[in-house]
Simulated assay, not measured.
Amino acid sequence: MDFQAFLITFREVLEALMIVGIITTYLRKMDQQQYNKWVWTGVAGAVISSLGVALLFQVVLTGFAAMSSQHYMRISIMLISSVLLTQMVLWMADSSKEIAGKTQDKINKIVTAGSVLGMVVHAYLVVLREGVETVFFFAAISHGDISQAIQSKGALLGVIAACVLAWVIFRTTVRVPLKTFFTVTGFLIMMMAAGLLVQGIGAMQDYGFIGSLNKHVYDISTILPEHPIDEAHLRRIGIEPLISGQIGIFLMAMFGYSSSPSFEEIVAYIGYFAVLIWWIRFRKGNKGQEKNEIAAAASENKKDSVSLQEKVQIAK
């Protein structure tokens, strides 16, 4: 769970800091630094609100556990988190290059209107969105124990790494290849989303909510058990696993690894990547076509303008 928590906090905190950094940098260029204190006021309020959301969410999860209905919440969180992570991947594929321009446009409108409240609200909502997503993802990877994820070393290291990278980007002349960063983290998040989807399907099958055409397509638990408990069980019956169960539990938590997956889990895992990659390429293709059409239209307008000027010259 530590690596998952690291990736989540690193990604979410960095995105929030990037947007806040763009806001404060743009305000400095506009010579409007007096708004900075209101930006950080919004950030502080969002952090406090996010902790409140985490507390509220934990109370709700505890209530479901008391009613012996925690498996419903657990499955729901897994599936919804998979959808949210997928949406994040799509957002990074579509909008990561345009984030600075969009943020500057919003800030320019707020400064022009002279709205201090608007600046606070904008910063607050930007950071709060990342905070709420973090809480939800922590609930998914910790199976409902959000405090465990928040207190993990991975979460703390993720925050520290994000702060350091954000400082490097905005305070030094070192060029950080953000395109590579978004590509790598996007791939890891995609793997995590696929893993949560598969775990959700497996949990539904375990609880008998859905059936299976083949419950165990193969079984490689003797090679790589998916949990140290499985490893200990194998050793009790005289079988020494080839790879430690510690690696198995990491792969299960991070990528949805299963030593004996069902037919539906395999289809869902492969299908997820096939559909998502096709959709990303499809959307990029459409965007490329739109750009070409806009360029062609601009070229035609330019030709028409030139032709009109020639006709005017001839008339003269």
Rank of each mutant, 00 (worst) to 15 (best):
T103G: 09
I146L: 12
Y124E: 04
I141T: 12
R129A: 11
G144R: 06
G101H: 11
D145K: 12
A140D: 03
V127C: 12
I141A: 11
G114R: 00
G131A: 07
T112W: 03
G144P: 01
R129E: 05
A113D: 14
N108M: 11
H122W: 12
M119L: 06
Y124K: 03
S115G: 00
G131T: 08
F138G: 09
I99F: 12
K109W: 01
Q104W: 04
V111L: 01
K106D: 12
A139M: 05
F138V: 08
G101N: 14
E130Q: 14
A139T: 09
I110N: 01
I99A: 12
G131P: 07
V132S: 05
V111C: 02
M119P: 03
A140T: 03
L128F: 14
V120G: 01
I110W: 00
V120A: 06
L128P: 05
R129W: 08
V127W: 04
H143W: 11
F138T: 11
R129M: 08
I110T: 02
F136Y: 13
A123W: 00
I146R: 11
S115P: 01
H122K: 08
L125P: 08
T103A: 07
L117Y: 13
A100I: 15
R129F: 08
E130V: 02
G144I: 11
T134H: 04
V127L: 09
G101D: 14
G118P: 02
K102N: 13
K109Q: 14
V135R: 08
D105I: 14
D105Q: 15
S115A: 01
I110D: 02
E133P: 03
F138L: 10
A139P: 06
D105Y: 14
E133Q: 11
V116G: 00
Y124T: 08
V135C: 13
D105C: 03
G101I: 10
A100P: 05
T103F: 03
F136C: 03
V120D: 02
A100W: 13
I107L: 11
A123R: 01
D145R: 11
V126K: 02
G131F: 05
I99V: 15
A100L: 07
M119R: 01
